[in-house]
């Protein structure tokens, strides 16, 4: 579903992403790990068509992001880091806007999508509240609702559990897990236990390069008996 080949992005003299290659199949939940500044977000921004790559390509369902960004964006649901949303709108107004842009043109169709997204992300108690008055956990869920409103085949989630309390984290994880059966999901995270909990594949990047691409079990087998963050530290030593 997602095919990334030799992606490169350079900011000034710094090469943020340096030839990243991987594929994600339907049913995969890929955990995207790496220290801060390793290039996780930049890679995600290139896959979702927000940034254009300096070299390489990202293809969703056979469509190259650079060739037909709108077609790719239709297939994608994207939760940007820190879940930006228009603060003056209420949750309902915001999701209604997203539904309209996503091509649900009749009021009934929009209402159905908005209700479904609100139900999935448990936003019902705050649906009439303006987004600026919400707590961080609710804001994050609004970002989530926005990303999965059109039931996309591909989900790209940049730190989806960031800022949530442990209960909410669990809830989001089970939500991702349940949805992923017929989707391809990429999620970036700092939380190593999260990878164990939901991902069936792990990619670790360091200094803009892939340093590991395997299952969580294989990752653990690299150093039997060691904690997963020790393995992580060994692999990403270059960033320290």
């Amino acid at each position: 579903m997602i095919e990334v080949k030799g992606l490169v992005k350079t900011y000034g003299a710094k090469r943020a992403v340096d030839g990243i290659t991987f594929t994600v199949k339907r049913g995969d939940i890929l955990g995207f790990l790496g220290p801060n500044g390793a290039g996780k977000s930049t890679t995600m921004k290139m896959i979702t068509g927000f940034l254009s790559p300096d070299a390489g390509s990202a293809t969703i369902d056979g469509v190259n992001v650079v060739d037909d960004p709108v077609a790719v964006k239709q297939k994608l649901g994207y939760l940007p880091e820190s879940a930006p949303a228009y603060p003056e709108m209420t949750v309902e107004e915001f999701l209604d806007f997203i539904a309209e842009v996503r091509g649900f043109r009749t009021a009934d169709a929009r209402q159905a999508q908005v209700d479904r997204a609100i139900q999935l992300t448990h936003l019902n108690p705050v649906r009439k509240q303006s987004i600026e008055t919400l707590s961080k956990g609710f804001k994050q869920r609004v970002g989530f609702a926005q990303a999965l409103l059109h039931d996309p085949a591909v989900l790209v989630l940049d730190e989806p559990t960031d800022g949530l309390d442990p209960n909410q984290k669990n809830e989001v994880r089970s939500l991702i897990k349940n949805m992923a059966v017929e989707k391809a999901v990429i999620l970036s995270t700092h939380i190593l236990e999260e990878v164990d909990a939901i991902c069936n594949r792990v990619i670790i990047i360091s200094q803009g390069r892939v340093v590991a691409d395997e299952t969580p079990a294989q990752l653990r087998a690299r150093k039997p008996g060691a904690r997963i963050d020790e393995i992580f530290r060994d692999l990403t030593r270059g960033d320290i």
Binding site: G49, F50, V70, L76, V101, R102, G103, Q146
Partner: peptide, 14 residues
């Protein structure tokens, strides 16, 4: 400033 530009330009619009 608020980052919504990233949301806007990852929606299917030109």
């Amino acid at each position: 400033r608020s980052g919504t530009v990233e949301l806007l330009f990852t929606l299917p619009i030109t």
